[in-house]
Computed example of a mutant assay.
Amino acid sequence: MISPRHPFLDHPGPLAFAHRGGDADGLENTLVAFRRAVECGYRYLETDVHATSDGVLVAFHDATLDRVTDTRGAIAALPWSTVRRARVGGREPVPLFEELLDAFPGARINVDVKAEAAIEPLVDAVRKAGAWERVCVGSFSQRRVARTRALAGPRLATSLGMRGVATLRLLGYGGRALGRLGGGEAVCVQVPERFRGVRVVDRTFLRAAHSRGLQVHVWTVNDRDRMSALLDLGVDGIMTDRIETLRAVLAERGEWAGGASR
């Protein structure tokens, strides 16, 4: 376990992330799902953010409401007055990101910034809540991570964008001519075990990350055997939809250290 470079990562043992709150009967990214994860003992919650057409920041994965709610349309094209009426799984409202910060003050929240328009509202929400030690921001887009970091300053924890991840992987295999890694302020790297059929997380990748002081968190791992194998390999955190399974695996290894206050 690599030593933390930011208070967000200050936690004994491997970090267990409830991905979108966990698989809670189709109610991903809802207060119900996140509450269930916290009650299960999770201290780390993972979510995504988009901004409505009038700049309201919501915790939601997709760019549109179509897949998981009873409403249709792109979030970026709809006002909050419309989005607030949508129901995930036909039951639960789409939460504001600030609601997560308020509802779970003992939890730490990993945020995937899905759109440029969400960056400023996100930084404003974290600033308003004084939640600099409780939030880590990442994205596939290196540009979005960099812009968020530029607006927030060094108080905000960030992970490497995917361009930085690719560079890190190649550097681990001796690609010295690639130049700078980029994202020098990052405190972790968050990656899938495989990407487009190519293995990302192996001992060489972990060694390259750890030698640069970066924790490695792997998403989204739902199989018990893969969880155990990755933990044996030395990853620093796992994101999962199967929150009870990951908790059981960590407990069996004597590495479960949950318990966020509500």
Rank of each mutant, 00 (worst) to 15 (best):
P4I: 03
D124R: 15
E133L: 05
L230W: 01
F97D: 04
K128Q: 08
H6S: 07
D112M: 11
L101E: 10
A177H: 02
D48R: 09
A115K: 09
E185I: 05
E39I: 05
E252A: 13
F60Q: 10
A115M: 06
A229L: 07
A59W: 12
G138H: 15
I109Y: 03
V249P: 06
A16D: 08
W80H: 06
L100F: 07
P95R: 04
G41H: 00
V137T: 14
L78N: 13
G183C: 07
G22C: 04
G130Y: 03
W132I: 14
P154F: 06
S211I: 08
G73Q: 10
G73D: 07
R194Q: 07
G183Q: 10
A248K: 08
I238P: 05
E99S: 13
E46L: 10
G234T: 02
I238M: 03
I75M: 09
L171W: 00
G21T: 00
P7T: 01
E39P: 02
L230I: 01
L101K: 06
L45A: 08
A166P: 04
L27D: 03
D70F: 01
T245K: 04
Y44H: 10
R196Q: 04
D66M: 10
R5A: 04
D236C: 01
K114Y: 13
R149I: 08
D241H: 02
S159L: 11
A150Q: 14
L96V: 09
R36G: 12
A76N: 06
E98M: 13
L31N: 12
E120T: 15
L45P: 12
M162Q: 13
L231Y: 02
T30L: 08
A117E: 15
S141V: 11
E185W: 11
G41F: 08
L246H: 07
A257C: 09
H61R: 11
G73Y: 07
A131H: 14
K128E: 06
D225H: 00
L250Q: 06
V200T: 10
A248Y: 04
V94D: 05
V191Y: 02
T47M: 14
S81P: 05
K128M: 03
R176P: 00
I119P: 13
Y173P: 00
T71G: 04
G183P: 02
